[in-house]
């Protein structure tokens, strides 16, 4: 193994993926490296398959082709029990939060600790309160998930995702639905978790400005593969029109804003022609 490989926690090579046979291909020949101990931001148009990519890394979906190596283990080929072993080292913040609705906020965050550690209830309580304090929800510990706002639920889910101090955290849209203050807090939290614990973070987000301030590496996905990657500075200084379009958020440019479809004019004219034939 060369030193460059040692420094990558996740190495994806030549990945092909479609949700089901014959369905729209999400990835074709995607290759990607996630450096260990760094924050990697993954950006791309909505619906391009960012959530799908995180699920592939977590072994919830199986690619049709290609390898996904997590710390040297090829995730798609692991047996169930080995996959579960590896999953104890990672954690995922789901786009929807996915708190367990039959447990209080406190129990949600204590859940992974109770499942996977042999800590006593007193120590678990200390950890849970610390994690809740970090996301500003210590006062909400007795609430049920149904009593939280969308942004609060997401922060509670974030506290749960970091409860076990995993090696890898995958954040799916951590900033969505946050007011500017909690957004700032979460940005700082992701950064400080990364610095103090040395964990590897993958952040999927549309909030370009926020993530560029903390990311070590930025990956832009479009057209079934990685179209640009590099440090935030490299991307900001790039004169590639695609990168420019993405970072400044323009609808017209090399990245299509629309879900694949015939052009609007064609579709409207086509419909009218159909009607005139019928009439």
């Amino acid at each position: 193994m060369t030193s460059a490989q040692m420094d990558d926690l996740i190495v994806i090579e030549n990945l092909d993926f479609a949700h089901s046979y014959g369905a729209h291909q999400v990835y074709k020949g995607l290759s990607l490296r996630i450096p260990r101990g760094k924050i990697t931001a993954i950006m791309g148009p909505s619906g391009i398959g960012k959530t799908t990519l995180l699920r592939l890394m977590g072994g919830q979906l199986k690619p049709q082709r290609g390898t996904i190596e997590f710390a040297g283990h090829n995730i798609p080929e692991l047996s169930r029990s080995h996959l579960y072993e590896q999953r104890k080292r990672m954690s995922m913040l789901f786009q929807s939060g996915a708190l367990f609705t039959d447990m209080s906020v406190y129990d949600n965050i204590a859940f992974p600790l109770r499942e996977h550690s042999k800590l006593s209830e007193e120590i678990i309580e200390t950890i849970v309160l610390m994690k809740l304090e970090a996301v500003g929800l210590r006062g909400a510990r007795h609430l049920m998930p149904a009593e939280l706002s969308g942004g609060m639920a997401r922060r509670a889910a974030l506290a749960r995702a970091i409860a076990l101090d995993p090696e890898l955290i995958m954040y799916d849209e951590p900033f969505a639905g946050q007011d500017p203050i909690s957004m700032g807090v979460i940005v700082k939290l992701i950064k400080s978790l990364n610095n103090s614990l040395g964990l590897t973070s993958v952040v999927v987000t549309h909030d370009v400005a926020e993530v560029l301030t903390i990311a070590d590496k930025v990956v832009i996905i479009a057209d079934k593969k990685v179209v640009a990657e590099g440090s935030p500075e490299e991307l900001k200084n790039s004169d590639d029109p695609l990168i420019h379009q993405f970072l400044s958020g323009e609808a017209d440019g090399p990245v299509p804003f629309h879900y694949r479809a015939p052009s609007l004019a064609e579709e409207i004219l086509g419909a009218q022609q159909g009607e005139s034939h019928a009439g």
Binding site: Q60, E85, R87, S91, A98, F111
Partner: peptide, 16 residues
């Protein structure tokens, strides 16, 4: 539980 990704999130926590 499936629709709200609670089952997925159990899986990701290595709980079957």
């Amino acid at each position: 539980m499936k629709a709200t990704e609670q089952l997925s999130s159990l899986e990701m926590m290595a709980v079957d």
